[in-house]
Design a protein around this nucleic acid. Structure first.
Lengths: 213, 213
DNA sequence: TCCGTTGGGGAGTGGCACTATCCAAGCGAT
DNA sequence: ATCGCTTGGATAGTGCCACTCCCCAACGGA
């Protein structure tokens, strides 16, 4: 398939595909002559994934490249690749080291990890982007004076645990390691808006139930 | 307090505060003389909220203004203001009308709303930003060929429902309507990264448990 | 009175995701 | 064979947006 057809089938402008090729988000097509390259179905699939990461996941192009590179890094084991890919996902603001709010948040996060018996989180601690993202978010809540007692966080953590079980069940429907790695990345990113919009719908529902006049 | 002190106490540069004032994200201070304005504690609080919406919630400045305006629109009832504020929150890509994937997603969403007995969602349907956000997200999953059967969505919906109950419990700890409205906005936005990072931590945990070598 | 400081406003900056243009090299119809 | 259209590749914009710089006039303490 030519670049034009790849563009037509994906709905992505040719100029943008060229840009992605340049940025190494998409592997080059098979060079036929100096002016013709052939692209396959896997290019189409990859292109759609890239678009999803960038448009649905609102991920910077550079980050998407890191995620994809980690996902296919041949030097890593399957498990390490999965971890590396999720590791590279965007993770918002970093906590401020010399902030008393951040310090309190850190303590609280550690308590939650302990109570949930999440040993990986405890071991990885501050080196994990997700951990730092959580600390920064809770520090913000603290700074604004919003309640976030440990019990309340544990409710969220428990629900997050249930979500993770459902997500991983889905990943396990894929048989081969490469498929699984791509699935983890795609499902982690693509289910985020699903979850957030469901939460807002549920909030509307619940708030209507409680505060209806 | 002066602009300089407001800046120091919030950690936001004076130039940026001036920008927010110009963009009407922050009400003007009380004008003392032509060259002096007085800002109060409520300005500090508002400034921190704005920063959280923009930096934690990664919300465009224009959107933050709409949210805040809706939240304090005197012409609306308390409930309507709450709805309007959440309504104005950013909601990502819109679904493509002539896309068969979007059509299928829409059906599936309607089924979920029916099964969850979420009547507000059913009535509001396509006019609700959260509904459209959900349709767009599921359409993306569909386009990429990832599984998202109704049962799986229902798991997410049920968990979202539990989250909403916990969230609204927190809102109800506030006694006055204005506080509640601000709390809904702040908690909706500020708990999103909390939820997403907990989910990633839980995924790491669960994936380690399943795929450990 | 003098000079540093303040609030205000307009113009500029930097980052980023594209996108428009150009060019040389095919390829297809005549 | 040739003329014109298309293709892939490279370079230089473009548009948006969240700031940020700079200047000015008006204080106000020494």
């Amino acid at each position: 398939m030519r670049l034009a057809e790849l563009s037509e089938r994906s709905g992505v402008p040719t100029a943008t595909i060229k840009y992605y090729l340049r940025e190494r988000l998409l592997p080059p097509g098979e060079r036929i002559t100096a002016t013709k390259s052939e692209y396959g179905e896997e290019h189409l699939r990859r292109l759609r994934l890239v678009r999803s990461l960038i448009q649905v996941g609102r991920m910077p192009v550079a980050t998407a490249r890191e995620v994809l590179e980690a996902a296919e890094d041949e030097s890593l084991s399957q498990n390490a690749r999965m971890g590396a890919a999720v590791w590279a996902l965007p993770h918002g603001a970093e906590p401020d080291e010399d902030d008393p709010h951040a310090a309190r948040a850190r303590e609280q996060v550690d308590t939650v990890l302990r109570r949930m018996d999440w040993s990986h989180g405890q071991e990885l601690g501050d080196t994990s982007p997700a951990y730092r993202m959580l600390v920064a978010a809770i520090a913000s809540l603290d700074r604004l004076g919003y309640p976030h007692d440990t019990e309340h966080l544990l409710v969220h953590a428990r629900l997050a645990g249930e979500l993770a079980v459902a997500d991983l069940d889905l990943v396990e429907t894929y048989d081969t390691p490469p498929e699984r790695i791509e699935a983890v990345v795609a499902l982690t990113v693509l289910y985020e808006p699903v979850l957030l919009s469901l939460r807002r719908l549920a909030q509307t529902e619940e708030s209507g139930r409680r505060f209806a006049e």
